[in-house]
Structures are given as C-alpha cells and as structure tokens.
Simulated scan of single mutants.
Amino acid sequence: MRARQKAEKRGRRAESAACILLFLKGYRILERRCRTRYGELDIVAEKAGRIVFVEVKHRKNKSLALEAVTHKQRKRIERAALSWMQNHRKLKQSLRFDVITIAWPYLPTHIKDAWQADLQAML
C-alpha cells in the first residue's frame, strides 16, 4: 500500500473515532468529508442549534496535531464553512470551529472553539 493510501486510511479511522466521540457527547453528525469549492470539511455537526465545523488531526502527539492546523488551513476551513452555511441556508445559526486531535493510543482530545473567525467580514 502506498504512503498516501495509508495516510488516507489513517485519516478515515481518525474521523470515525472523532464522530463516535461527538455522538457520545450529544452532537448530531450532519456530514463527513464534505467537499466545497474551497476545500473539504472533515465533520459538520450540530448541537443545541449551533453548527460545529470540526477539523480532525491525527499525529504522533497532541502538540503536533495542533500545529498542523495552520493559519492558512483555518482560512480555507472558514471559507468552506461559509459556503456550506450558505448552501444549507443556515447563515442565521451560530457556528463554531473545533479541533479533535487523535494520537493513538491516547483518547481523542476535543478542543471546542479552537479559533474564532469573523465570517461576517467575509459576507
């Protein structure tokens, strides 16, 4: 199996683990691996009327996973999230950006409100 295929498989497993964690915490999973013209959103979930865009990072440790969510990547995710919100007519709902880090064999770590975005400025 090629390195890219192995990374893809690891990523899918990490996203599945993240979905299970979110489900157990009471989130409703709306979409996984949602493609927009601006890029892919790992997980789109909802809880208490809030839309939550979750970036999943699988690395050797939590620090490396957090470092992998760069400023450039956050901006891409924000644009993709805004596109998703517009396409699903959810612009009036509040939203949040979370990160779930996966560093086997440790339990996943859910970081709520990992960053703030000024989406109104993008409209």
Score class of each variant (00 low, 15 high):
Glu46Gly: 06
Arg4Lys: 15
Asp98Gly: 05
Arg79Asn: 15
Leu30Pro: 02
Ile111Gln: 03
Met122Trp: 07
Leu119Asp: 03
Glu8Met: 13
Leu91Met: 08
Val69Asn: 01
Lys92Trp: 08
Arg96Gln: 07
Glu67Phe: 15
His88Leu: 04
Arg76Asn: 06
Arg74Lys: 14
Ala7Leu: 12
Lys90Leu: 11
Lys9Ser: 13
Tyr106Glu: 14
Ile29Ser: 02
Arg2Tyr: 06
Leu82Asn: 02
Thr109Asp: 07
Tyr38Val: 02
Glu31Phe: 12
Pro108Trp: 06
Lys112Trp: 07
Thr36Val: 14
Thr101Gly: 01
Arg50Trp: 03
Ile111Asp: 00
Met85Ile: 12
Leu21Ala: 08
Lys9Gly: 06
Arg76His: 05
Leu64Ser: 10
Phe23Ser: 14
Val44Asn: 03
Glu78Cys: 09
Val99Ala: 05
Pro108Glu: 05
Cys19Pro: 10
Gly39Val: 10
Asn87His: 12
Leu30His: 01
Lys75Cys: 13
Lys6His: 10
Leu22Val: 08
Thr70Cys: 15
Ser94His: 03
Arg89Tyr: 07
Val44Tyr: 04
Leu41Arg: 00
Arg96Trp: 03
Tyr27Asp: 03
Gln86Val: 14
Trp104Asp: 14
Thr109Arg: 07
Ile102Tyr: 03
Leu91Asn: 03
Val56Asp: 00
Lys57Ile: 13
Ala114Cys: 12
Tyr27Arg: 03
Arg12Ser: 11
Asp113Met: 09
Lys90Cys: 13
Arg50Phe: 06
Leu91Phe: 06
His71Val: 11
Ser83Trp: 04
Arg33Pro: 01
Asp98Thr: 04
Pro108Tyr: 03
Ile51Asp: 01
Ala81Tyr: 02
Leu119Gln: 06
Val54Phe: 10
Ala114Glu: 02
Pro105Tyr: 15
Ala121Arg: 08
Ile111Tyr: 04
Glu8Ala: 11
Leu91Ser: 12
Ile20Glu: 09
Leu64Arg: 05
Ala114Gln: 01
Arg76Val: 05
Trp104Ile: 14
Arg35Asp: 05
Thr109Ser: 10
Tyr38Gly: 04
Leu119Ser: 09
Glu78Lys: 02
Val56Tyr: 02
Lys57Gly: 04
Arg13Tyr: 11
Phe53Lys: 00
Val99Ser: 01
Arg59Thr: 08
Gln73Gly: 05
Pro108Ile: 07
Lys90Gln: 14
Trp104Ser: 07
Arg96Val: 13
Val52Leu: 10
Glu78Thr: 11
Arg35Asn: 10
Asp118Tyr: 09
Leu41Gln: 02
Arg13Phe: 09
Ile29Lys: 04
Lys75Glu: 15
Gly49Met: 11
Leu82Ala: 03
Leu30Glu: 07
Lys6Leu: 14
Trp104Lys: 08
Ala3Cys: 12
Gly39Cys: 14
Ala45Cys: 08
Lys72Ala: 15
Arg59Phe: 12
Lys92Met: 13
Phe97Lys: 00
Ala48Leu: 13
Tyr38Met: 10
Lys9Tyr: 13
Lys60Ile: 14
Gln86Glu: 08
Trp84Glu: 03
Ser16Gly: 08
Arg79Glu: 07
Leu119Gly: 00
Lys9Gln: 14
Lys47Leu: 13
Arg50Cys: 04
Gln116Ile: 15
Ala7Lys: 05
Ala3Glu: 15
His58Arg: 06
Thr109Gln: 09
His88Glu: 05
Val69Cys: 13
Glu67Trp: 10
Thr109Lys: 12
His88Ser: 09
